[in-house]
Design a protein around this nucleic acid. Structure first.
Length: 356
DNA sequence: AATACGGGGTG
DNA sequence: CACCCAGTATT
């Protein structure tokens, strides 16, 4: 393959002129860099920015994070999605704080052993914080290289990732690993965007396969398609003696570690209807107020949620489905619990119905 | 190697 | 609606 001449130098010049001002680029603290990288996994800078600031403020060092209760970490993570990131982040913080006695793992191989740190994140921290000359390969790097060189390899394949990593590393100036990696990703995010890339002003326009042949939309090639499963969820906030009943999601499923109100679930709309008409709790369930129907989309699931709120008299017997596995929380305590965003938003909209 | 895991922005 | 986002863990 004929490599693009002076690629790194031209890329770094572009980066010098066009880079965004982002807080994690102003530090060499591996803790903060790690934090930013985990937050930004499958997440846009615009969405992750506020979370990064919040985490740095609450947990200025890895020890602060390690000492925090997991519920608090998940609550700060609320709304960002992929909650295993927060659980792994917390677990890794404890590993670093205790096993490594606070000395942050300082090489790709050491970093790679941390929970939630894969190939990309290990390379990012190793290069940004420790100048280790290892190339990052994220969605941006895939896109930039696939378009520049006209590579039709399926980026879903492991083999392709290795190929692109080697290709990027072949262009990397060993003394400028950090800036080069940053520049590759920034170029993908700002110039060589997924849709409507800015080819007219691109410094590589004359070198780029996709720009020359008009293949920007075909590249990169990604074969995988996700299938969506439908789920039907019915939720009720039960309010009694000034407290709300909430339970933790402990099973291996979406929203693990988050809290939710009482739930009835079905695989089909018909099954849900039957449950609500025939089951014992149905009568009580239907007395709720502020019932909303909400369609909530996840990557692999389409959720049809109906959710409501209902008051029980102080002496009311507990409905059978509230037996164990859950607990009663004051509205303020409920605020502090980590919840799926769709639940949290409903609660915010209707919490004024409490105390009446 | 394939699949699950959130939520939001873009065209 | 379809695609994608500074990916990782699990099977």
């Amino acid at each position: 393959m004929k490599m693009i001449p002076r690629f790194a130098g031209r890329l770094l010049e572009w980066y010098r002129l066009h880079q965004r001002d982002l807080p994690w680029r102003k530090t060499r603290d591996p803790y903060r860099i790690w934090l930013s990288e985990v937050i930004l996994q499958q997440t846009r800078v615009a969405q992750g920015l506020a979370y990064y600031e919040r985490f740095v403020e609450h947990y200025p060092t890895v020890h602060h994070l390690a000492k925090a209760p997991i519920e608090e970490v998940l609550r700060l993570w609320q709304g960002l999605g992929y909650y295993s990131r927060a659980r792994n982040l917390h677990a890794a913080a404890r590993t670093i704080s205790i096993q490594w006695a606070g000395r942050f793992p300082a090489s790709y191989d050491e970093l790679r052993r941390l929970k939630g740190v894969g190939d990309y994140t290990a390379a990012a921290i190793a290069s940004f914080a420790f100048d280790e000359p290892v190339a990052v390969v994220d969605g941006n790097v895939f896109r930039v290289l696939a378009r520049l060189y006209g590579l039709y390899d399926d980026i879903s394949r492991t083999k392709t990732k290795h190929k692109f990593k080697a290709l990027s590393e072949a262009h990397m100036p060993p003394q400028e690993a950090a800036a080069y990696n940053q520049a590759m990703m920034e170029f993908g995010a700002v110039q060589c965007t997924p849709q409507k890339p800015l080819c007219m002003t691109c410094p590589f326009r004359d070198d780029c396969y996709a720009a020359q042949y008009g293949k920007q939309q075909e590249l990169p090639v990604k074969s995988k398609k996700t299938t969506k499963r439908k789920r039907y969820l019915s939720y009720r906030f039960f309010y009694r003696n000034g407290k709300l009943w909430m339970q933790e999601r402990k099973q291996k499923d979406i929203w693990k570690g988050l809290y939710e109100p009482a739930r009835i679930e079905a695989a089909t709309a018909r099954e849900m209807e039957q449950l609500l008409q025939n089951e014992a709790p149905a009568a009580l369930w239907q007395q709720a107020q502020a019932i909303e129907q909400i369609r909530h989309l996840l990557t692999h699931q389409e959720l049809f949620i109906d959710i409501g709120m209902l008051h029980l008299p102080p002496d009311a017997a507990l409905p059978p489905f509230l037996k164990d596995g859950g607990d009663w929380f004051t509205p303020e305590e409920c605020d502090a619990l980590p919840k799926p965003i769709v639940i949290a938003q409903y609660f915010e909209r209707h919490r004024h119905l409490l105390h009446e």
